[in-house]
């Protein structure tokens, strides 16, 4: 069964058709890449997958079940998480607090429980904190737990944003341009990290950097002018004439 299926997605902004009948499927423990020239509709497709944009037609299917009117706040409940291109860290909250906001909401005690600081709420609080620290530690940034994001270098902040997405233990992760602003060495580390994540989850990835996409993806969907122009393994896509034409002059290899 597929982890996520987008089928027949069409999105219009006024007179502009941003996506037309776009479909893709992400299999279990797979990394699925979405690439395409600027303005091809990659970000719009991503926004449909996380509920920021409602498609005019088509639907989102999660593990065989259609999701009606997906809203962003439903993501954790569906076992999904998304990172943002702009990271979207809360600047005036510590790294640890940032990650704790993302932590699993099922484990939480209700409104009144936390307001009255009942013992159970205290235990939950500690459990959330421990889990957030563990994820930060996994990504090698636990030592920054008490710092505020604006004081940290960009690559560290990227890891914090990733930790915040991972702390809810999703089995489908949507990564939006994870490599932007990273050096070549950092990008290699990121590639290894993404491959390692597939042991626990599937990844849908939008990315500009071709070498990273070709290295980590099992499957790639190529968009141009809002339509799917190619789909397949990195090798298939790399040699597809339509892709070469769309990227005319750009290096696909």
């Amino acid at each position: 069964m597929t982890e996520l299926e987008l089928s027949g997605i069409t999105v219009r902004f006024g007179g502009l058709t941003a996506l037309q009948d776009v479909g893709l499927a992400v299999g279990p423990h797979q990394v699925h890449g979405v690439i395409g020239p600027n303005g091809a509709g990659k970000t719009t497709l991503f926004n449909v997958a996380c509920g920021f944009v409602q498609p005019d037609s088509g639907h989102v299917v999660r593990r065989g079940e259609r999701v009606e009117r997906l809203r962003p706040r439903d993501l954790p409940g569906l076992g999904m998480a998304r990172t943002l291109q702009g990271l979207g860290l809360f600047d005036r909250m510590t790294v640890l607090d940032n990650v704790m906001v993302g932590a699993d909401h099922h484990a939480r005690s209700g409104f009144l429980g936390s307001l009255l600081a009942l013992p159970r709420a205290g235990a939950d609080e500690r459990a959330l904190r421990d889990r957030a620290l563990r994820v930060l530690d996994d990504l090698g940034v636990a030592s920054y737990a008490d710092r505020f994001p604006p004081s940290l270098p960009y690559p560290i902040r990227k890891r914090v944003a990733l930790a915040r997405a991972l702390v809810s233990e999703p089995d489908l992760l949507l990564l939006d341009e994870p490599a932007s602003g990273l050096s070549a060495g950092e990008m290699d580390e990121l590639g290894d990290l993404v491959r390692a994540l597939t042991a626990r989850m599937s990844v849908l990835l939008v990315e500009h950097h071709m070498d990273l996409v070709m290295r980590v993806c099992d499957e790639i969907t190529v968009l141009d002018f809002g339509k799917v122009i190619a789909h397949g393994t990195p090798d298939e896509v790399r040699n597809d004439p339509a892709v070469l034409a769309a990227y005319l002059g750009e290096d696909v290899h």
């Binding site: 706040r73 979207g88 909250m93 909401h105």
Partner: peptide, 17 residues
């Protein structure tokens, strides 16, 4: 924590559930 997150950035807070 969730109130602070909502105050700082509603869209991101929603994304985090």
């Amino acid at each position: 924590l969730r109130m602070r997150a909502s105050a700082f950035n509603q869209e991101v807070a929603r994304l985090l559930g």
